[in-house]
Design a protein around this nucleic acid. Structure first.
Lengths: 139, 139
DNA sequence: GTTATTGCAAACAATTTGCACCCAC
DNA sequence: GTGGGTGCAAATTGTTTGCAATAAC
């Protein structure tokens, strides 16, 4: 049972505990960013896991390139499964729904920006905010 | 003394207190993003101001379009004087030097993104990171 | 059996808040 | 003089940590 996930963790030199497998499953299922609190609430009924354990597991998953931080909003960290391809977030300011954006115009802009500034640009972080179609209707 | 700053605050319907003028001066001088703690440390010698007061003042300045939040890093909020024209930050990962970037490719991209997603995009936040010319030489 | 992981409670750090005093108007 | 601004201490909130019990190997 869950042999695949167990092997995945072991390949990363992580002990395959019940909690880690539960959290890993959760991460794999969710397409949008989530917080530690989200995990805690969503697993409460089936597999309650202590908040400290969730935080510790998230940090271990970050270190092992399973997860990535995608935002920090009002003092809350949001995570997402590490994406192979570069992507950004479009967040609804009302309901907090998130749309991942795949194509990004920054790449093409990078060269000219490096020439202008002399900087050697290594990475960037882009967050867009607005109203989702649903919340527009409610206004 | 400081008549200009006093009038500026009064025009915004804010009482022109000593603390507010001191903080306003600080904000006007600084070109790069700063935290509440930065203000506290930098004013410690000349004009010590209580941290609560600094936080309260920053929030009032945010509400009155004097300030803007520019980042939230490791649980710390960073602010900057509200810029008339839209701008972003290019931050050196070594020495933390900041170059403000005036032109931004997102504006042109906005329309097509709104069509694609149905979102009504209100704002965006872009942060670029890399090595400044100085720190490149040192490597 | 050994060592890493877990749950619990306590610690932490940034920010906010309640309250009595004080200053700008 | 009055009401908003301030300092102080205490509360709050998300996250981290110390420690004893436990589970993975």
């Amino acid at each position: 049972m869950n042999t695949e996930l167990k092997d995945y963790l072991k390949k990363k030199n992580l002990k395959a505990t019940k909690n880690r497998i539960t959290i890993l499953k959760y991460i794999n299922k969710r397409r949008d960013p989530f917080s530690a609190e989200d995990i805690n609430k969503d697993l409460m009924d089936q597999n309650p896991i202590n908040l400290s354990t969730i935080y510790r597991t998230l940090n271990i998953f970050l270190d092992n390139d399973i997860l990535q931080k995608v935002a920090e909003i009002d003092g809350v960290l949001y995570y997402q499964k590490l994406q192979e391809n570069h992507q950004h977030q479009l967040i609804c300011t009302e309901c907090k729904a998130v749309v991942p954006i795949e194509n990004c115009p920054i790449a093409e802009w990078k060269d000219s920006l490096e020439k202008m500034t002399g900087y050697q640009i290594a990475s960037h972080h882009l967050e867009l905010r607005g109203l989702c179609p649903n919340c527009q209707r409610k206004k």
